[in-house]
Structure formats: C-alpha cells, structure tokens
C-alpha cells in the first residue's frame, strides 16, 4: 500500500515540478524576452550614459526644484528596491499621526506661501514604498515651490503636469495619476537649473 501510494506521488511530483517549475517559467521568459524585452526587464529608462531608473518604480525626490513623490516606508532608505513594503501602521497608532504631522510640516516649510490643504497622497506612505505616482492634485500643489526655485512661470508647470496626467484606464480602472520620475525628467530637460540648492535631509 505504501509503495503503491508513494511511487505515483513521487513520480508525479518530479514530472509536474519539471513542467510547472522549469518548463513553464522558462517558456514565459523566452517569449517575454523576445516579444516584450523592455517590459520584461524592468522598463528601464536610460539616457546616453547610464540607466536613470525604471518607468514603473518611484525614486526619492527631496530637492525643492523637483516634484516630490509619495512618502516611502522602506528601510533604511526610502524607495529601497531591495525591501518593498508599507508602514503597516494601524489607523489608531500615534506613530501614524506623528509621521503625517512631520511630513505636512516639511511640505509647508518648503513652500510657506501654499496655504491649500495638502493632498492626502503626499503625506501617507504607499503600500510598496516604491509608488511611482502621485495624484494630479498632489503635483499641482507643488507648483509654487518648483516654479520659484526654477524661476519659471507656474502656468508653464501647470501645462507640463497636464501633459503627464495618465487618466483612468477605460475611464474606469484605477485613478488618474502622474508619474513623478517622468515628470521630473521632463522638467529637468525643459527648464534646467544651474546649481540646484543642496537637498534637505528628510
């Protein structure tokens, strides 16, 4: 009885491991590498000299001349690609409100003239810690600061943001968003600044 059970169990485990654990992922890898090489390799954005980032992964922005992304709860540094994750702070945890208070104060200190309420995505940590996007309102909220540092008109930035808004898919799925890295790369290209001020430690 034992052998009659173990022989099929073992041989099927080996067979199905080869099929689903090696043949299947290797087949998908081969097809994906040929058919969608950019997407399958991390959607890298490269300029002439180096890979600047991934179109799908957010980066830590703290210089006042750039648009800032979501707070990231990864450790030890924000946007750590080796340790994705959220804060996991519960809604009642005082540490959550303390963190939000500090983030709000940092945003307000960087642009005292901006009196409007801060869009919620700018003060809450994302789920992955690598969120590449912010809401259009969160981008617009930062126009005053970026315009002043770059000495350009806010209207130019409003127009730039409009170009980067990704609407809901089919008008239904997800939320309208702006990819912060793409926006900042475009910003640096169109409105370069000489001698950006030293970034603040966050």
């Amino acid at each position: 009885m034992l052998f009659r059970t173990l022989r099929p169990a073992l041989s099927l485990l080996i067979l199905l491991t080869l099929l689903t654990g090696l043949a299947y992922p290797l087949l998908i890898t081969a097809v994906a590498q040929v058919a969608f090489p950019v997407a399958a390799n991390g959607s890298a954005i490269a300029d002439k000299t180096a890979v600047t980032g991934s179109a799908l992964i957010g980066q830590a922005f703290a210089e006042p001349g750039h648009f800032w992304g979501r707070p990231s709860a990864t450790t030890p540094q924000p946007y750590n690609g080796l340790a994705s994750g959220g804060s996991n702070l519960g809604p009642n945890n005082p540490a959550l409100l303390d963190a939000i208070r500090v983030r709000a104060a940092t945003l307000r200190a960087a642009d005292p003239a901006q009196q409007a309420p801060i869009p919620v995505d700018l003060v809450t940590a994302s789920a992955s810690g690598l969120d590449p996007d912010i809401s259009p309102a969160a981008a617009r909220w930062q126009i005053g600061r970026v315009a002043r540092v770059r000495q350009i008109s806010p209207a130019a930035l409003t127009a730039l943001i409009e170009q980067h808004i990704v609407p809901r898919f089919w008008g239904l799925l997800g939320e309208p968003h702006v990819n912060v890295l793409a926006l900042n790369l475009d910003l640096d290209q169109r409105f370069p600044v000489a001698g950006t001020p030293a970034p603040a430690v966050r």
């Binding site: 709000a104 869009p119 919620v120 809450t124 996007d133 309102a137």
Partner: peptide, 25 residues
C-alpha cells in the same frame, strides 16, 4: 487628518480616502 491640514476629499483632481498603505494608481 482634516485637523492637520490634509485634504482627504479628493479636491481638484486629488485622491479621496484612506491612502496610507495604498498605491496612487
């Protein structure tokens, strides 16, 4: 959050709701 000067209602193309631990997209 409202007392901390944070907008959670999605004003002006923003996101509404409890965004801690959620992705914008």
């Amino acid at each position: 959050l409202a007392a901390l000067g944070v907008d959670t209602q999605g004003a002006g193309g923003g996101l509404a709701g409890n965004l801690e631990g959620k992705e914008v997209r």
